[in-house]
């Protein structure tokens, strides 16, 4: 939970040009903004870059924020605009859909562009972390190689002794397991 008085104090520091105030604001909203952008950024887009642009734009326009109003909503408006700009840029790139994103997937992702679900996404990230903890160590290691270290499949295949085909199947199974685990947790928490 974000402490409102603390936030207003940090925002005053940002207005006064104090980088430490800006850092505190980024820390407070890093995960809600990043999870929301990651969930809605079209394939081929750089979600972290869009998130950084969101904070930087907020930093530049901090004089426009009316103290005491809903900073979170103001920040998400900027995030939504940055995401729209990134989507427009990608869409106008030659061959975008043929290279990166089937239309049907891009449209479905676009339909979900509602900042109100940001809180749900943060919970989903927490649930995902818990679900990851429930996997066996070997599965966690392979996912770590794939997602933390960005290793190509060939390299993971060499290290684990699994064929690339088997590795792809294993990754699909792991992702499906995580999907089911999150769905179970969501169902438990809402009943």
């Amino acid at each position: 939970m974000i402490d409102r008085a603390r936030l207003e104090s940090d925002l005053r520091r940002v207005r006064d040009g104090d980088p430490a105030g800006f850092e505190a604001v980024v820390r407070a909203f890093e995960w809600p903004i990043r999870t929301w952008i990651v969930a809605h950024c079209p394939p081929g887009g750089d979600a972290d870059d869009v998130a950084q642009r969101t904070f930087i734009e907020a930093f530049k326009r901090i004089a426009e924020y009316a103290a005491g109003t809903d900073f979170r909503a103001w920040l998400f408006t900027i995030a939504r605009y940055q995401l729209m700009a990134e989507s427009t840029r990608l869409r106008r790139t030659a061959d975008y859909h043929r290279r990166y994103a089937p239309h049907a997937l891009a449209e479905e992702l676009e339909r979900r562009g509602d900042a109100a679900e940001a809180a749900g996404l943060s919970e989903q990230l927490d649930q995902l972390r818990t679900c990851l903890g429930g996997l066996n160590p070997q599965a966690r290691e392979i996912l770590g190689q794939r997602y933390r270290e960005g290793m190509p499949l060939e390299e993971i295949s060499r290290r684990t002794g699994r064929s690339i085909g088997a590795l792809k199947k294993y990754l699909f199974t792991l992702r499906s397991k995580l999907h089911e685990c999150i769905a179970r947790k969501t169902a438990t928490e809402t009943t």
């Binding site: 995960w31 999870t35 990651v38 969930a39 394939p43 979600a47 995902l128 972390r129 996912l143 992702r175």
Partner: peptide
């Protein structure tokens, strides 16, 4: 699945 794939990147 796509959202979760990207969340996996964040979770790491």
């Amino acid at each position: 699945l796509y959202g979760e794939h990207r969340l996996l990147g964040l979770a790491h």
